[in-house]
């Protein structure tokens, strides 16, 4: 188990290192002058522009040798300093992002967990059933391939505009201030439902298909045939198959996380939901490089943390990793 974890943690450190390096490398080795680009897009008065130019040239640290820039960059990161946003000048990028993160978690955590559970259950149920295989499963293939933002747009249009059941913009009613009142909670949930549902549905399709295929592999394994030949009831064989098929699905969760996060970003944009996705859109429209780079780092850190949690869960679920046999 120690070996398993130390290897994983080493990979995570390496990943973080690579991510920070990319974050540092890209602005310096891309064509064009980032400071110039940034200021030309931000529409501000000329005297303010001079102050900002001075700040950003220094912040990018373009006046010292490369190796020093790189070290400075790391130092700034360990101080939690990701620069100052152009779009929300003079607010710190970290503050802007911290305000958005809770909304991301509110969408991602429930949609990922619930769709994983429901999708796996349904996939296991549908496997080797000719009727379901020909009716509902083709739909799940489509769901898995559906671009997140498209489903979000469709739902916003049909449920939000045509039928007018749900609001389609923001995280709560614009006339309200966040508070712990009942009215606010209702407003929050009503705004939360559509982005959550569209994320849930697409992910559900992916897990259902994955589980169906995995169960079919397991049902063809020798142990399943052996159980069957012993006269074990179908439900028991399925139960064992399900348990074995779960493990790759847990690993799959870690691997699929990046895609889900990307989907959540696009979904937030559709619903103007104030998470990191919406922030990114503003950052891109305003050429706010510090904010873009900050969002990138936060997404990577978030995914790394989630990966680590999944690793811990894996060790709890799979006894082989605990006994020093290599799991994955």
């Amino acid at each position: 188990m120690k070996r398993y974890f130390s290897r994983k943690v080493f990979i995570y450190i390496l990943t973080f290192f690579l991510a920070v390096t990319i974050d540092w490398l890209v602005p310096r080795f891309m064509p064009g002058n980032p400071v110039q680009n940034m200021l030309s897009r931000a529409s501000i008065q000329s005297d303010a522009a001079e102050v900002m130019r001075g700040y950003y040239t220094k912040a990018f640290g373009l006046d010292v040798p490369l190796w020093q820039q790189y070290l400075n960059f790391w130092q700034a990161i360990f101080h939690g300093d990701l620069g100052v946003s152009v779009y929300m000048f003079p607010e710190k990028v970290t503050n802007v992002i911290f305000r958005a993160v809770p909304y991301d978690l509110a969408l991602l955590v429930p949609s990922v967990l619930l769709s994983w559970i429901a999708g796996n259950k349904f996939g296991a149920f549908a496997a080797r059933s000719r009727w379901l295989d020909n009716t509902i499963l083709p739909i799940t293939y489509l769901l898995r391939a559906t671009p997140y933002m498209w489903l979000a747009i469709l739902m916003a249009w049909s449920l939000g505009i045509v039928w007018g059941i749900f609001p389609i913009s923001g995280a709560y009613s614009f006339s309200m201030q966040p508070s712990f009142s009942f009215a606010f909670l209702v407003s929050f949930l009503r705004h939360w439902f559509l982005p959550f549902a569209s994320l849930f549905i697409v992910q559900f399709g992916g897990w259902a298909i994955g589980m169906r295929n995995m169960i079919i592999y397991e049902l063809e394994e020798d142990y399943s045939h052996y159980l069957e030949s012993l006269g074990a009831p179908r439900s028991l064989v399925r139960k064992y198959a399900f348990r074995n098929a779960m493990l790759p699905q847990i690993t799959g969760l870690a691997l699929r996380l990046g895609q889900v996060v990307a989907g959540a970003l696009a979904t937030e944009i559709v619903f103007s939901y104030p998470g990191i996705g919406y922030l990114l859109l503003q950052a891109i429209n305003n050429q706010d490089y510090f904010l873009i780079q900050g969002c990138f780092l936060f997404i990577v850190i978030g995914v790394l943390l989630a990966n680590f949690i999944i690793d811990v869960v894996y060790v709890i679920v799979d006894p082989r990793t605990r006994q020093g046999m290599e799991g994955t």
Binding site: T15, P31, G258, V261, F296
Partner: peptide, 20 residues
């Protein structure tokens, strides 16, 4: 394993943002 952990879209974002 390192490259697989970093979300593809996040990297594309940073790179594309700097390409005019």
């Amino acid at each position: 394993n390192t490259v697989i952990t970093i979300p593809k879209l996040a990297v594309l974002l940073v790179i594309a943002a700097y390409l005019t």
